[in-house]
C-alpha cells in the first residue's frame, strides 16, 4: 500500500513522519464512517494549529468521521466538531485497523 504522505510504496518502517505507526493519512482523506487516531499536527500556520488545539484534536485522540460534506464532521467521545478540509489536511492520523 502506498503512503499517502510521501508516496513511497515500501511501507513505513523507519519513516521519520510515521514514527512507530503505519500508513499515516491526513484527516481530510478519511471517508465517512472511518475511525482513526490523531498522530501529529502538521498545520502550516500557527493560527490553524491553535484552532486544532481548541477543537481538541490532539495526538492520541481517537475519532470517527461522521461526514465529509459540506464540511468534515468528526466525533471524539461525546464531543462533535466540524472543520473544513483545509484544516483537516493538517491533522495526521492513523486509520484504525
Amino acid at each position: 500500500m502506498k503512503c499517502t504522505m510521501c508516496g513511497t510504496a515500501s511501507g513505513c518502517d523507519g519513516c521519520p513522519i510515521a514514527g512507530d505507526f503505519y500508513l499515516p493519512a491526513t484527516l481530510a482523506s478519511l471517508a465517512a464512517g472511518e475511525k482513526a487516531t490523531v498522530r501529529r499536527l502538521a498545520a502550516a500556520k500557527g493560527g490553524d494549529l491553535r484552532k486544532l488545539l481548541a477543537l481538541g484534536l490532539l495526538p492520541g485522540v481517537e475519532l470517527e468521521v461522521e461526514r465529509r460534506w459540506p464540511a468534515m464532521v468528526v466525533r471524539m467521545g461525546f464531543a462533535t466538531v466540524a472543520l473544513d478540509a483545509q484544516l483537516a489536511e493538517g491533522v495526521i492520523v492513523s486509520r484504525a485497523a
Binding site: 500556520k45 490553524d48 484552532k51 486544532l52 481548541a54 477543537l55 464540511a71 464532521v73 464531543a79 462533535t80 466538531v81 466540524a82 472543520l83 473544513d84 483545509q86 484544516l87
Partner: peptide, 12 residues
Amino acid sequence: GDPPSFYLELPP
C-alpha cells in the same frame, strides 16, 4: 488577507 478557515464545535 488569507481566506478564513472553518472550525466549530457542534453541540448536541
